[in-house]
Design a protein around this nucleic acid. Sequence first.
RNA 1: GGGCGAGUGGCGGAACGGCAGACGCGCCAGCUUUAGGAGCUGGUGUCGCAAGACGUGCGAGUUCGAAUCUCGCCUCGCCCACCA
Length: 856
Amino acid sequence: MTPRAERLDPAAYEVKWRERWERDELYRARDDVPGPFYLLTMYPYTSGDVHIGHWYASTGPDVVARMHRMQGAHVMMPMGFDSFGLPAENAAIDRGVHPADWTKANIDRMRAQFQTMGASWDWSREVIASDPSFYRWTQWLFLQFYRAGLAYKAMAPVDWCPKDQVVLAREQVLGPERRCWRCDTPVIKRDLEQWFFRITKYADELLDFSQLDWPEPILLMQTNWIGRSEGAEIDFPVAPVTAGSDAGAVEPIRVFTTRPDTTFGATFMVLAPEHPLVARLTTDERRAEVEAYVAAARRQSEIDRLAAERERDGVFIGSYAVNPLTDEPVPIWIADYVLPGYGTGAIMGVPAHDARDFDFAQRYDLPIEVVVAPRGAEPSSDAAFTAHTDDEVLVNSGEFTGMSASAAIGAITAHLAERGLGAPAVSYKIRDWLVSRQRYWGAPIPIVYCDVHGPQPVPEAELPVLLPRDVDFAATGVSPLQSHDGFLAATCPVDGGPARRETDTMDTFVDSSWYYLRYTSPQNEDAAWDSEAMRHWMPVNLYTGGAEHAVLHLLYSRFFVKALRDMGHLAFDEPFLALRNQGQILGADHQRMSKSRGNVANPDDLVAQYGADTVRLFLLFIGPWDQGGPWSATGIEGVHRFLTRVWNQAQPDRGAGERRPAPSVPGMPPRSLAGEIPGSGKTAADDLLAAIAGGSRSLRRITHQTIAAVTQDYGLLHFNTAISKLMELSNAIGEAMEGNAGGEAVDEAVDTLILLLAPAAPHIAEELWERRGRPYSIHLHAWPVADADLAAEDLIELPVQVNGKLRDRLQVAPGTSAEEIERLALASERVQAYLDGHEAVRVVQIPGRLVNVVTR
RNA sequence: GGGCGAGUGGCGGAACGGCAGACGCGCCAGCUUUAGGAGCUGGUGUCGCAAGACGUGCGAGUUCGAAUCUCGCCUCGCCCACCA
């Protein structure tokens, strides 16, 4: 028996290599090396445990980073922790652990777990959001925004989670039932003074994606989120006839509409219940009912205002306005389907051409006036009719009758503008970003309140405003900062007198809006970043993460960069040039992985059993990386077998010629080759001889085809197909070795296989590279380049179809003429049999791909 | 309700106008092993002894040719959800 090769034992080398790489600073990104490539993965929240989803999200980008590095780029792949936020505080309340301690323990555990992946992170650039060395600069950024007029304080009705006792951002309230994004509790409304960032100022520029290579769905979501609508604002004068109200003294009511062409059809108006004019326009006899409705709307908004499918209801307030085009009086209603925060908080009701207005008019018997109709058709008021293309024309619209609806939009707006009753207007769904949180575990907002001078920014030299450590957490969740005398006591920067410190902290999305900037110079103590390093690395070349951040983190980060650019702090427009989303790994139950569901898959056991490389490779192999799917370790044996096979094939004594033992007794064909392969008419020995004869050439061809395919697949993040091609190369190597053929070609193939495998399975590649006597480190070795001549096939197999069905195959040399191929195809016995006497009327040829003989 | 995406063997998936099911899991048979495991070889869409026929959610269409393009329907997933 030949001595068995040393068994694959990842435990024997994985840790060794990771320590060596770390010691040699192999992945350290330097600011002075040309060819920078900034590859960023969304920094993880400090939940406490690294689960399989973290591995999935990290392994793919690491493959790309490693390939780029071998291709000559100087790659920076930094890592850090999103460590502020609610769970740390909840842990403090529930278990009496200080958030800082909880967070630090989690980071230490997670960092150690992350390091078992063997990913090429530059840990020397680690950024931790809750570390004063970081949040000092978060506070500094707040002050820049404040000075630029982009941070302001305003009274606002805010969404309040009664369970977590926190104000929620608009995008943290989910679904029609308006539930808290963290705890699923229905939220209520409360009026509070809040800090905002003026993201709306950048609404238009944020709609410009021209510099971005991002997934289309993400761009669509951001576009919808910003929600730009073009239309007009139109003033409806309040009718003086209105009795019992002080309507005579009231300014016109301004509405926003995207359909100014339908103004002739406005037969009523609706104000949001919160509209400031409601109280003044309500007549005495309607007052009781109106006030009841307003109160109900307010109360309902405190319960589940939008929970169920609701009838669209409202109340007439007694006053009338005047349609500026028809001069007809129109009744003014209030209804909660009109939102106070969008447009002007008031609409003109055009029931013939808006489904909501139609419902409302039906319910309250309001007149329905059709003013747009398909060209040549009878006007109909059966249902709301809402199109406005060139095919619709205005009817019953005075001088505009007969004009196309699309043209009338501009014409009517202009007509109203001339008379001072309207103007073109743009409206957006996006609201300013509410950044203040009434919580402890966040970056304190660096503002103090002086009785004499009002709110004042903390001088930059006094940053950071540190979170006090000695705090008591109440189960109610009220921020302990509000009762901490030492924290509250401050000095007015203007007169040096006593002041009270702001107790709100910042939304953690503020941290994540700039952490990637800090990675460029994370240890800088004099500034948020070094401008040289910033110029060198930014913008990020490739950003990867989950699609769930489509409109939160990604939009805020873009806003930050544009705002800081306009302040002169940055010299580029976009933070992330290319974005790719990995799919989500779900629990085995097809649900999102969460501790409470108990379906979190822990990779540590798999790593202990198979080694990190196998786990990495398996995650890359299970399917398209952008797709994700439910977790199952079924099949991990397959990639482990593959690595075992590579391990055995790559042992130095398995190489060329005499260095490897013959498969059996020398001079004798192996016994098992003597028999005939059933049904083939050939013996196994025939196949073997053929393999030996053509073996080295075809193995070289496969090797170079694999280089080309894997390079392309890695670049496209198609890791699953890349791995399958590596498996095919290994299978081909196995056959060549079985045939004892072509030592040099085998050596080339094995070296190539290891090089191509290195990004995906870095430890085993390094180990085998060393065992084969190649110089350390494989991860600094040049990436193989495919030789197109060697990769080219010298015989092409052409499928031959008859009427689209496969009937035969031709073997032809490249360059065989179409005439010759047609002759060969028609001469085929099988083709003739299927022609069945019919004549071939046509022969379709796709060069190099296929021949189709058509008989009808 | 609106938008986006996806439906392919027992399973994960490949092919994305041109040989459907690459690669792997699982399963079956054989070899090897004291045994277990591992390893190796072959097979494995469905029906059929075979020749062959049929097969990519359902139904139409375009095309010499459709898993792929178009239209309608069904199912699932994600996002948005009274935004005038």
